[in-house]
Each structure stands twice: as C-alpha cells, then as structure tokens.
Design a protein around this nucleic acid. Structure first.
Lengths: 224, 224
DNA sequence: ATTGTTGCATAACAGCGATATGTTTAGTAC
DNA sequence: GTACTAAACATATCGCTGTTATGCAACAAT
C-alpha cells in the first residue's frame, strides 16, 4: 500500500478552461465551443480537457453547474420584504435578467440544447430544480400574508416558473418581436398569474408596478 | 435562345430524405442527424442533400417548416364551440400533444437548439408566429362571449402561448418530475391564466374540466 | 538515486459538413 | 435518330470535430 502522490493538476488551468469556454459560449455561441479553440486560448493541448474534465461533456457540465449556482445566487439575492407579491415580481425579473445575460448557457441549462454531445443527467437537473425553492418560499409568504389563495404552494410555484421560463425562452428564440417584447409582456404575465393564484387584480397590478423602484435601484446598484 | 430542360430531380427522393431525417431525429435525437446517415438510408450519396436542399441547414429548415405546418394543422383542427374557454383549453392541449409527439423537432422550432449549424431566420420564425393566430382568435371569442375581460387580446394570447410553451419546454427538458408532471400541471396553469384574463375562477375551472370529454373523444378518435 | 504515478504534448483515428472534380443521365433541338 | 447541354449524382478530398494511443517529463515516496 505505497501511497504515491504524483504530479498534481493546476487549479488555475482548471478555472481558466471553464472561464474561456464560458466566454466563448457567450460571445460566439455554441458553434465556437471546441476543444482546440478552448485549449489554444488557454495555452495547453487538447488533452487538458480530458485530464481535467474527462471530455468535452464534462467541461460543459461544469459550466452548467456554475450557471445554476449563479442563477441561484441571483434569486437568493432578492430579499423578502413586507410585500411578498412584489418580491415575486423581483424574483421573476431576476430570473429573466440572468437568462438574457447568458442566453446560450441558459439554453443548455433548461432548453435541452444538446451541446457537443452533452445532455443533462438527472443529477444535473436536480441542481436546476433548486431554482424552484426560492419561488416556493415566496409563494408560501404570499399565502401566509393572505395575498394568495391557500392553494397547493408547489403547484403555484411551478406555474410561476413555467410562465417566466416560457416568456424567457420565447424571447431568446426571437419569437417576441417589438413592440410586444419581453419587457412589455413580463408584467401582464406575472399579474395574470398572480390574479389566478388568488391575488386581487388591482392589488397585483399595483404591487408589481410598485416593485419597479426596487428593481431599478438594485439594477443600478449592481451596475455601479 | 435555346431552351434546354436538363435532368430533373426525383420528388420521391426529396420527400424520402426529409422523412428519413425526421424519423432519425425523432428516434435517435439530433446527434444521429448527419448527411452520411440520411443518404445511406436513402440509398444515395451525400451530394443528394446538397442538390435537393443546398446543405444540411436547408434540410433541417424543410423539416422545421413541416413541423410548423403540422402544428398549425393540429391547432386549426380544434373547432370553435359555444364555450370558447373550453376551446382554449383544447388549443393548449393540442399544442402540448404536438410538442410531446415530436420533442426534438419542437426544440429546433422554438427552443433555438442549434442543429448542425442550422439557426432560425426571421422568415422561419414568421411561420412559427402563425401559432399565435389561432390563440388570438380564441381569446377574441372569449372576450366577445363576455368570458374574458376586455383587455389587449394580443397580450392575453401571448400569455397563453408563453405559459403553455414554458410548461412544454420544462417538461421536455425533464424538469417536471412525477408526481408533478405536465398533465397534472396543465389544467391549473391554464385555469390560473384564464382567471388572470378575467374569467371567474369557478367558471374557468369548470370549463377546463368540462373540456376533458371533448379532449378524450378527439384523442381516441385520432388513435382509432 | 531510484521508482512509480500522473500531467500533458504529439500524433493519429473516425466521423462530421462541405466542396472540387469527373461521370452519368435526362431532355431538347435538329 | 443523333448530337448537345445542363443538371443530377458519385467519388475523393479538405478542414474541422471529439476522442484516444503513445511517449515523455515532472514530481512524490522510498
């Protein structure tokens, strides 16, 4: 049982490969993702992809996991306030902004876009389902505050997720042409669903509208 | 000015290539779509793809157009009845069934899944937007029948489309695990949106539930 | 210093879409 | 009926892809 610790991998190369791949995916799209492009920009040989990730699929998987983590970070960054309906609007908007900021990555994460032979495993999807936990909590807050009808919380959260996901994916697919763009459709969509969830129409519209100030404040704070 | 009509293409080979490609996409997924696989099964050389479609992108584009045509056929097959809200539920269900029957094709049509270098053009998307016309008409019927509030018809139709599209894409992506599968979520999702569109909650739930008989009848009629 | 284990570069392989080149074939003109 | 033309199509090839076999270099343990 001789324990031999041979040459170790360089963690900087590991992160560099992921970052280069993510940048390539974001700027030039899925077509540009190739072992040769990535490793050339990283200054290594194509073998690095295999020693560090076991292949192209492994690298894509790491990117997807980071994408899930970033999304979750954006969602948990939305604080719970006295107005849970406005919180819900902010959650949806954060979800949409994250998707618009990384459209190709979002497609791989949720759209099922097969990228270089990569396909989601059930384990990967489990990371993605954490998306829902923030929404479930928010719906529970809405019910607790007496704003939503006391329906199945998980069902309502799924409705919110599906509606926002549908809006985002159609928008990314280019199917929401001006002047009916995603921004103009986002509020009515959320309001309609909230009304369906038991909120009174005028209250839902008012609270979504009222959340705009928080939204703009947080966006400018993030940019500055 | 001698008019010479040279050798013409064989329309049977044309349709055969598309059908083989569609079958391959449906059974083995996007990875199986290659000029060599398709032409080998068709008994021709790879050049056939280029003479008939100008390349792989052209063949995929033809498949997508046929997919749009079939979807439109399924939607227009939903007849308008005295209950436009139930019609809306049937429209959504037809949309979902068509997507579940051809998941990979649906991803290419709406998910923006880049397939062998193919990407949708604005012209292609215009075919896809015809999806909305059936929904717009149905919403207009709902408003005319006094079932929906007199809001922007196009906005409401977009909401219906986005919600159904979101449910379908998440379902295709494997994100709706049992027991919260798409079937269990479909009705609540539609009811919530219809309530948000101005329908009374109990009436919306009742009409969606009432449409089940028509749905089952038409499905069994289609199967038999 | 020797040895064992691993990182990683080089070169190669099978498969991909696309193309250049040559052959075959169908349709017209005479 | 024959000659001609232009497109259909096959063959071979190119540059690209992910992947792998091979070999060498580097580092830890003994």
């Amino acid at each position: 049982m001789s324990k031999v610790s041979p040459r170790r991998t360089d963690p900087r190369t590991h992160t560099a490969l992921i970052e280069i791949a993510a940048a390539l995916l974001a700027t030039e799209g899925p077509q540009a993702l190739s072992t040769r492009r990535i490793t050339a920009e990283a200054g290594t040989s194509t073998m690095a992809v295999y020693t560090y990730f076991g292949g192209m699929s492994g690298l894509v998987r790491q990117m997807v996991h980071e994408g899930f983590q970033r999304l979750q970070g954006h969602l948990t960054a939305v604080r719970s306030t006295f107005d849970p309906v406005a919180d819900m609007a902010l959650l949806g908007r954060a979800y949409r902004m994250n998707a618009l900021a990384n459209p190709h990555l979002y497609s791989v994460m949720f759209g099922g876009a097969s990228l270089s032979g990569f396909s989601l495993t059930d384990d990967d999807r489990q990371h993605g389902r954490y998306t829902l936990t923030s929404v479930v909590e928010c719906v529970a807050n809405c019910v607790a505050a007496g704003r939503f009808a006391d329906a199945d919380v998980a069902h309502v959260a799924h409705q919110m997720w599906m509606a926002t996901h549908g809006l985002v994916t159609l928008e990314l697919g280019g199917y929401l042409a001006a002047p009916l763009d995603g921004e103009a459709l986002f509020d009515p969509q959320l309001v309609a669903l909230m009304v369906g969830a038991g909120d009174r129409p005028d209250a839902a519209a008012r609270s979504v509208r009222a959340s705009r100030r928080r939204i703009e404040r947080e966006l400018t704070a993030q940019a500055g």
